[in-house]
Simulated scan of single mutants.
Amino acid sequence: MSFDAKRLLTDRQVEEAAGMFFALADPQRLRLLILLAGREISVSELATAQGEKLSTLSARLKVLHAARLVGRRREGKSILYHLADDHVLALVSSAVDHACETH
């Protein structure tokens, strides 16, 4: 994976990237992304794992979905969430790895 700093980006692309960092800036939303790494989980399972009310969790997932960091699908009465793609997994992985480094 590489970043081309010379690549020209539109204002919209930069704003969308900034929106992703905004969504990632909340520790509880970041925890959700970590829980979703490599798997799909229902809203009720996420609420149990986080020890939160469904309404609070839904609000967090709404922010992550709006930032295109998570995807969702319905299965019967359940809504299952997953990371949107491998870019999100790499972004979260890099942030966590960097935070775990000793300085």
Rank of each mutant, 00 (worst) to 15 (best):
residue 66 A to W: 10
residue 71 G to I: 01
residue 4 D to Q: 10
residue 46 L to Q: 02
residue 54 L to C: 01
residue 29 R to P: 11
residue 14 V to D: 08
residue 66 A to L: 12
residue 55 S to R: 15
residue 9 L to Q: 10
residue 48 T to C: 03
residue 81 Y to E: 05
residue 82 H to F: 04
residue 86 D to H: 11
residue 43 V to T: 09
residue 67 A to V: 10
residue 77 K to D: 06
residue 49 A to K: 13
residue 78 S to I: 05
residue 67 A to N: 10
residue 5 A to C: 11
residue 73 R to D: 07
residue 37 A to Y: 07
residue 75 E to G: 03
residue 5 A to I: 13
residue 38 G to A: 05
residue 23 A to V: 08
residue 77 K to S: 04
residue 95 A to K: 13
residue 83 L to H: 02
residue 11 D to H: 12
residue 64 L to N: 04
residue 49 A to N: 09
residue 49 A to I: 07
residue 33 L to W: 13
residue 16 E to Q: 13
residue 68 R to A: 00
residue 17 A to G: 03
residue 88 V to R: 06
residue 31 R to D: 05
residue 62 K to W: 03
residue 13 Q to T: 10
residue 23 A to N: 04
residue 70 V to A: 01
residue 42 S to Y: 06
residue 82 H to D: 02
residue 81 Y to F: 13
residue 103 H to D: 03
residue 18 A to T: 09
residue 53 K to D: 00
residue 6 K to V: 02
residue 5 A to Y: 14
residue 4 D to C: 02
residue 75 E to T: 11
residue 48 T to K: 15
residue 94 S to Q: 14
residue 46 L to P: 01
residue 26 D to Y: 00
residue 73 R to M: 05
residue 13 Q to H: 11
residue 52 E to K: 14
residue 84 A to I: 01
residue 56 T to A: 05
residue 76 G to I: 07
residue 59 A to N: 14
residue 22 F to L: 05
residue 1 M to F: 08
residue 51 G to F: 06
residue 68 R to V: 01
residue 50 Q to C: 11
residue 54 L to K: 10
residue 85 D to C: 04
residue 5 A to L: 15
residue 51 G to E: 06
residue 88 V to D: 04
residue 40 E to G: 00
residue 80 L to Q: 09
residue 46 L to N: 01
residue 26 D to T: 00
residue 45 E to V: 11
residue 57 L to H: 00
residue 47 A to M: 10
residue 3 F to G: 13
residue 12 R to E: 06
residue 78 S to W: 10
residue 56 T to I: 12
residue 75 E to K: 13
residue 9 L to W: 12
residue 97 D to R: 15
residue 78 S to M: 10
residue 85 D to W: 04
residue 27 P to N: 07
